[in-house]
Design a binder for these strands. Structure first.
Length: 565
RNA sequence: GCGGCCGUAGCUCAACUGGAUAGAGUAUUAGUCUACGGAACUAAGGGUUGGAGGUUCGAGCCCUCCCGGCCGCGCCA
């Protein structure tokens, strides 16, 4: 595999630092994209970082490094890609690319097509990304919707960046909640059959969907279950409700464009034997003790606030216990890195689960938990009130029906995961420039529209472009647009490191903006002379690159890239 | 009380994980089309980054202490 220009520069800088013995361990050498044009295309800041270790002024190091960099890059045959290397106080090394380097980048977009932006950053590391994992006790909420949008997009990005990602939905189909669900369904069933003496369980589920389910059971089986003892018939109601609800969840997620590699059932995989085994493993390592009739895990040995009960005095497990077994199993299934996406109400749970991972001999960082803050829906400037307890909330399904999959997914990605976001329902539905998702889609459709016009003028924009003379693209705006296109893989790399896909939305909005501006200033379809056609061909090549990057970015987000709107 | 996240332009949010003069959108104001999609574009004003210290070549970002908002703190799940 040939190195990109960027990789060559970083490698050369590293080599120079080693040859001069400026540092024992330079660490990561970053090539930044300066905000100001006068500071070049790329900027190196290592000189300043080395100053202390070398006991030399950073500017000195920068000058020496820049000088040797020119020699080395020339030797590597990169001379025609670099227009200049500048040193600026207090020690920045600024690299200016030649137009030729930019044209090469544009050609590589065309060559790589749908794969443009891919990298090998992840080196094939096996990642298990677990997200949503909502208990099958009711429809998916807005919180789950955001988690689904972020999780799915993050998985796409990690895959694009060279990780081997597996998406998993963990089904909590056992335990108290499922029991309560069964109890609630049974009560609804009896109510509909005319029983007046039934009492609704204290922690029951009050949503109307249980009435619908009860109707279905009556239609199918009549009153066959009305006379059974609770404990005898409860497994039926619990399993029936959980299966029905899970089926609905799968459909909702599919309509939202979210799929999983595994739907991982607690009931089937986290067996009694596995749980006993994991407790035995912890006991063997000395992290288990008995107190007040319960069995405890000494999680404080690994930074938790307090120790945690894993077997209650009534002999039942706590929620944590099967979860420890589940996470051990994730490692045993061959994953190097576990990423969990949770809601903000679970952040207190992170430490104890990480403690269990440590106690089992895995590194603390092998499990990463991303907390996705809540989204609040706004309608006409007012928050939409929701109460889970009363069963009054807007579901994922309703949201998708109202604003559409594309807008919903995009809006959930627009903010950083760790800040709460305001979801403006009216804005999401607008088909104007104020709505960022339409703005971006419009840019894509516009390129397609122009290509249609070019085709009518007698030239196929999709073919015969190999001989396009890109050196015609000399306007600042055109060169800037190419620079912007080339940032795409940096943006993705950033997302994969921060585990937050937010950056891609900002980037695509900016790219679309630069394209619209370019379009307004320069005509793509110029005239009919041979010289006009040379210009047209070059500009078609440029905006084909824009279309490709928009398309790749939207595909990663799960948003449609329409040819016309 | 303890812990987590957040606090940036009137509003909604960015800022490449410590880089150079803190940027977009929106709102406001003033402009731009006989031609490829006006669902667009150009420009202006708008800031003591909640406050105070500290770390260093450099801080919106890291550390400490305050202020404000949201969330969590069970032998619940």
């Amino acid at each position: 595999m040939t190195l990109s220009l960027r990789e060559k520069i970083v490698a050369a800088a590293r080599q120079i630092i080693i040859e001069n013995a400026w540092s024992r361990d330079v660490g990561h050498i970053g090539l930044e994209n300066p905000k100001e044009k006068k500071f070049g295309d790329w900027s190196l800041n290592v000189a300043m970082r080395l100053a202390k270790e070398c006991k030399r002024p950073p500017l000195d190091i920068a000058r020496a490094l820049a000088e040797q960099l020119v020699i080395k890059l020339t030797a590597e045959g990169c001379a025609d890609s670099i227009a200049g290397i500048d040193v600026k106080a207090p020690g920045f090394i600024n690299i200016f690319l030649s137009p030729k380097a930019l044209y090469d980048m544009l050609r590589s977009i065309k060559a790589e097509g749908d794969n443009f932006g891919r990298s090998r950053l992840g080196k094939g590391q096996k990642v298990l990304l677990e997200f949503v994992s909502a208990n099958p006790t009711g429809p998916l909420s807005i919180a789950h919707a955001r988690q689904a949008a972020v999780g799915d997009t993050l998985a796409n990005i990690l895959d694009f960046c060279g990780y081997a990602v597996s998406r998993e939905y963990y089904i909590n189909d056992e335990g108290n909640q499922i029991r309560n669900l069964g109890l609630s369904l049974r009560v609804r069933y009896l109510e509909l059959l005319g029983h007046t003496d039934v009492e609704f369980p204290e922690n029951g589920y009050k949503g109307d969907y249980l009435y619908d389910m009860a109707k279905k059971i009556i239609a199918e089986k009549g009153d066959a279950f009305a006379q059974n003892e609770i404990e005898e018939i409860l497994p039926f109601f619990s399993a029936y409700a959980a299966d029905e609800i899970l089926g609905g969840i799968r459909e909702e997620l599919a309509a939202f464009g979210v799929g999983f590699d595994q739907w991982y059932s607690q009931k089937h995989h986290i067996t009694r034997e596995r749980i006993d085994a994991v407790i035995a493993a912890l006991r063997e390592r000395g992290y288990i003790y008995e107190q007040e009739g319960a069995t405890w895990f000494r999680s404080t040995d690994f930074g938790d606030d307090k120790d945690r009960v894993i077997i209650k005095s009534d002999g039942l497990f706590t929620y944590l216990t099967p979860d420890i077994a589940y996470h051990k199993l994730k490692f045993e299934r061959g994953f190097d890195r576990l990423i969990n996406i949770w809601g903000p109400d679970h952040h207190g749970y992170i430490n104890r689960l990480k403690a269990s991972v440590c106690a089992l001999g895995y590194t603390r960082d092998a499990l990463e938990v991303i907390i996705i803050q809540l989204a609040t829906l706004f309608r006409d400037g007012n928050p939409v009130k929701m109460s889970t307890r009363a069963g009054e909330y807007i579901t994922l399904q309703e949201l998708v029906q109202e604003v559409g999959k594309d807008a919903a997914r995009f809006f959930f990605l627009m903010r950083r995961c760790d800040s709460q976001l305001e979801f403006d329902l009216e804005l999401a539905k607008k088909k104007t420039m104020e709505n960022p998702v339409y703005y971006i889609q419009y840019a894509h459709a516009r390129v397609c529209g122009i290509f249609e016009a070019v085709r009518k003028a007698g030239f196929d924009p999709e073919a015969g472009q190999a001989e396009a003379d890109l050196s015609i693209l000399q306007e600042t705006e055109a060169l800037e647009l190419i620079r912007k296109l080339n940032c795409f893989s940096d943006v993705l790399a950033g997302c994969s490191v921060t585990l937050d896909p937010q950056g891609i939305t900002t980037y695509l909005r900016e790219l679309a903006g630069e394209f619209h501006a370019y379009y307004n200033k320069f005509r793509i379809l110029t005239g009919d002379t041979p010289d006009d056609w040379k210009v047209t061909r070059a500009r078609v090549f440029l905006i084909a690159g824009v279309r490709q990057v928009l398309r790749n970015g939207m595909r990663l987000m799960g948003v449609q890239a329409p040819e016309s709107m």
